[in-house]
Design a protein around this nucleic acid. Sequence first.
DNA 1: TGCGTGGAGAGGTATAGCCCAATTAAGCGA
DNA 2: TCGCTTAATTGGGCTATACCTCTCCACGCA
Lengths: 238, 238
Amino acid sequence: MSDARNTDHKSGRVRSHIERLIDDGLQPHDKLPTERQFADELGVSRMTVRHALNALEEERRVYRVHGSGTFVAEPTIDKTIRLTSFTEDMIERGMKPSTRVVDVGTEFAGAAVGSKLSLSPAAEIARIRRVRLADGAPVCLETVHLDASRVHGLLDRELTGSLYDLLASRYGTVVSRAEQRIGATVLEPADAELLDVAAFSAALVVERRTIDQHQRPVEFTRSLYRADRYSFLIDIER
Amino acid sequence: MSDARNTDHKSGRVRSHIERLIDDGLQPHDKLPTERQFADELGVSRMTVRHALNALEEERRVYRVHGSGTFVAEPTIDKTIRLTSFTEDMIERGMKPSTRVVDVGTEFAGAAVGSKLSLSPAAEIARIRRVRLADGAPVCLETVHLDASRVHGLLDRELTGSLYDLLASRYGTVVSRAEQRIGATVLEPADAELLDVAAFSAALVVERRTIDQHQRPVEFTRSLYRADRYSFLIDIER
DNA sequence: TGCGTGGAGAGGTATAGCCCAATTAAGCGA
DNA sequence: TCGCTTAATTGGGCTATACCTCTCCACGCA
């Protein structure tokens, strides 16, 4: 919970201090000391305390009532969908992930993919098709599209590992968020064969547009998940 | 975009000013004036400018690069999944929702539904099957299961409106969160007919367990969505 | 007993100024 | 010409202070 990096800044130390208070015996809806008390006690200015409390409020660890005080929030069961790679996802589900590359190549973006990646339809893109397996059985067939000009030499590399790791370590591209569309379809015979199921079986279609730290689109990926082996769990707050 | 309430505070005015700048001709990744320039120009302190920029950064209208400047972000389609009813959902998508009740009745919970609602398998449950339509065309076939002892008389009521509203106004049950599983399937002929599509068409299966303000399960609903007319949009943060 | 009103105390907004850290470009030297 | 150093610029963090609005309770009046 408490991060060592917190000690880099005063507001981080204040934050850790408050987190410790909450973890050590305080109950939800208990009142925290006032901002001015924290400031005096920790020898920092009130603005710094507010900075730390803002962060904690953002994460729903505390809530504030104007004129009244700051209180410990109810613990949230924070299972909101997260941005994880297939590899991380499978390990979390207790299965052993592996990957088989089906084919790779370059092609013109075209209208659909081009618009998703903010590129001209005539731009060159790198395309990677991979089957992702869990415990040796196919789960997912994914087709990744990347701006070829930003990933020189990528297609000659080993592509069975995490693409996100490769993008970060080799091309300095850090993934920050993604927009995802989840739909359903029935599998074409060719795709069904790659996934080792009967033709026209049900599948989840996931189209994912990944965005980097500068809000630029990184990749557009279309994945087909076997419906009998995969589903999404989502926790939603009102 | 620009809100009238913004004028209540200086930071709101600063914020509006910057938003206007962005909307009037600035392109993504264009550089904004520096924080100190804004402060001078608008006659406010730099902290106030930073406050406004923090809010805009939070909403991903701008991004900052330490030592370099503040820049206009790429426009984002911000459709985070929320806990909405079908009715709200369709209105937001610009369509007119309606409902047709297929059948209602009571039955024993059974093992599967009972465990989802934390009830004995022998408990009596109310079951409602409804077809939900958008602009007059079927989109979703839902089967709702409720603890019969908590919703006396519900099945005799008008069931074409929002079930959440009915639960709140008549039974004091306020929905606070939900756990949802999203999968895919092909439609049985009987279900396909109710949804007005060919048998064995693709559909999304959504199983939703709704929890009230006291953390008690309220309903368990299984919905089948026509894949050609519905998909989920999700925004994910790393 | 009941009500309402003021004051203390809480968070919210804003100021002016200090130093730090990252970036960038200009200038200098090999 | 290339590469390194340096200085200016920009955002990041923090301080100390001031004044605002909202809440809530105690006190006093009817």
